[in-house]
Every structure is written in structure tokens, then in C-alpha cells.
């Protein structure tokens, strides 16, 4: 882990489109009631502190860190569930790849159960599934990992709310102000349109952006389906450095 300040790092990012993101206070998702700030955000111009950020290029990731089918295996056998590869490219708003950045992911098991002491859902734990992993993007911004498809599960919000199958993602970029957490859904899942957390986003096109596409070309025959999920981080407005830099 170390930091990096790109040339032009004081240059502003494009302003965040807050209407594209969920608002803070979304009554349909009840947990926001006491956790949503009520004041307006303070608009802050770019400063070195937030336009720089940590990088993880030299972290030694374990060989199984991006293999959720095996990385928690207790007895050497694979996790239970529909095998799949999730991959994609991390880009910025200027459509430039974001290389050497950390991507972390976590999910429920095939039955919709998380490995967490506070989790009370009656679906069984899989003794060989931990439910998390991490990757560093390659020079073209690509990441990939192997996992099983997470199950849908009920959660205490309304009387009978269910989360669609999803995977949580955390992504860094090269500036602390690019930091992003989101969730990936699966193409064609009707549960997406019934979910109060998905519904915190107003724009259908924005929800589509969170929906991974089945990718038959990259399916591993007789083994695993493939889903593609590209992630877009904020981009820099500066034009004067645009010929020089990755992720400028």
C-alpha cells in the first residue's frame, strides 16, 4: 500500500451527479431514516488531500484471493452453488481504464446466507464458503474472480422484502474522492425491480449500470458461467495532462 499523486492531481474531478446516485434519505429503505444527513453537503473544491489516494499495487495478494470457490475451503472441496466467473473493466468517466487499483467484493452464499454472527436467516451456511475476495486491476483495468451465484434472501425492512441476488463491490481509483461502494445485480432477475435498496436509485438507466450481463463467450465450458460487470469511477476534468496519464 502506498500513495500516489498524479501530475494534475490538484485538478478537479467531474462534479458528482448526485441525482444519478441515490439520495441520502430514502424512506423505502428504512435504515436511512436516522442515518441520512439532513444538511446540504459542503461543496469543496479540489485539494491535494482528496485528489490523492492510496494505491495497492505492491500488496501481495494471495493466490486464492480472487477464488471464492476455494479461498475458505475447510476440507479441500469446492463451495456449493452455481459456478461462475465475474469479470469486468474499471474505467473512469473519460472511458480510460483504471489500472492497478484494488477491487474488493463480498456476498451471501448460494442459499442467500452471509457468514456473519449477526445474520439470522435460516438458510444453511456452507462450511467451505467465506464469501469475500479481492483483486488488483491489470494494466488495462480488468479484474476477475471465481465464485458461486449468491442466493436471494429476505430481510427486515417491510413485511416481506427480499434482496435480489447481488455482490457488493468496493473500488478505490487513484484519488480518495473517487472512493466507491456499490452492488452488482444479475441480468434478467425480476427481483431487482422489487427491491427497496435498488429503488433508492431513481433512474432506470443507472440501475441498468449495476446489472451484470451474461457473457456466453467467456463461459468456461462444462464448468462456469461468466458475467461481465464494468465499473466507472469519477474522471478528472483536466485536459492538459490527457496525453500523459493513466486515469488522469
Amino acid at each position: 500500500m502506498s500513495g500516489i499523486i498524479l501530475p494534475g492531481a490538484d485538478g478537479a474531478l467531474y462534479q458528482r451527479d448526485r441525482a444519478w446516485h441515490p439520495a441520502a434519505d430514502t424512506p423505502g429503505y428504512k435504515s436511512t431514516t436516522f442515518r441520512a444527513p439532513k444538511h446540504s453537503l459542503l461543496a469543496l473544491g479540489p485539494t491535494k488531500s482528496e485528489m490523492s489516494g492510496p494505491t495497492f499495487g505492491h500488496e501481495k495478494l494471495g493466490a486464492l484471493d480472487n477464488d471464492l470457490i476455494r479461498n475458505f475451503s475447510q476440507d479441500g472441496s469446492d463451495a456449493i452453488g452455481q459456478r461462475m466467473i465475474v469479470y469486468g473493466q474499471v474505467l473512469d468517466e473519460n472511458a480510460r481504464p483504471v489500472p492497478h487499483t484494488l477491487v474488493e467484493y463480498w456476498q451471501a452464499n448460494a442459499g442467500g446466507r452471509y457468514r456473519h454472527k449477526k445474520e439470522g436467516y435460516l438458510a444453511a451456511l456452507d462450511p467451505n464458503f467465506g464469501g469475500f475476495g479481492r483483486s488488483i486491476t491489470d494494466e488495462n483495468g480488468f479484474y476477475h474472480f471465481r465464485t458461486v451465484k449468491p442466493g436471494a434472501y429476505p430481510w427486515p425492512n417491510g413485511g416481506n422484502d427480499w434482496r435480489p441476488a447481488h455482490i457488493h463491490f468496493s473500488v478505490f481509483g487513484h484519488a480518495f474522492a473517487q472512493r466507491l461502494i456499490t452492488q452488482m445485480y444479475f441480468e434478467g432477475d425480476p427481483m431487482i425491480w422489487q427491491c427497496p435498496i435498488v429503488a433508492t436509485i431513481n433512474d432506470k438507466a443507472a440501475i441498468d449500470q449495476l446489472t451484470a450481463r451474461l457473457d456466453r463467450q467467456n463461459t468456461t465450458p462444462m464448468d462456469a458461467l461468466a458475467y461481465r460487470f464494468d465499473i466507472v469511477l469519477r474522471g478528472r476534468r483536466s485536459t492538459m495532462f490527457e496525453n500523459k496519464l493513466e486515469g488522469n
Binding site: 451527479d17 446516485h21 472511458a95 456473519h116 468496493s170 456499490t182 452492488q183 438507466a205 474522471g235
Partner: peptide
């Protein structure tokens, strides 16, 4: 491109 929209980090 549009920035990927945020979703809550959730309870876990």
C-alpha cells in the same frame, strides 16, 4: 461515461 451509482455497504 456515467459514474457507477453507489449502493449502501449494507450490514455486512
Amino acid at each position: 461515461l456515467k459514474e457507477t451509482p453507489s449502493q449502501t455497504a449494507g450490514p455486512y
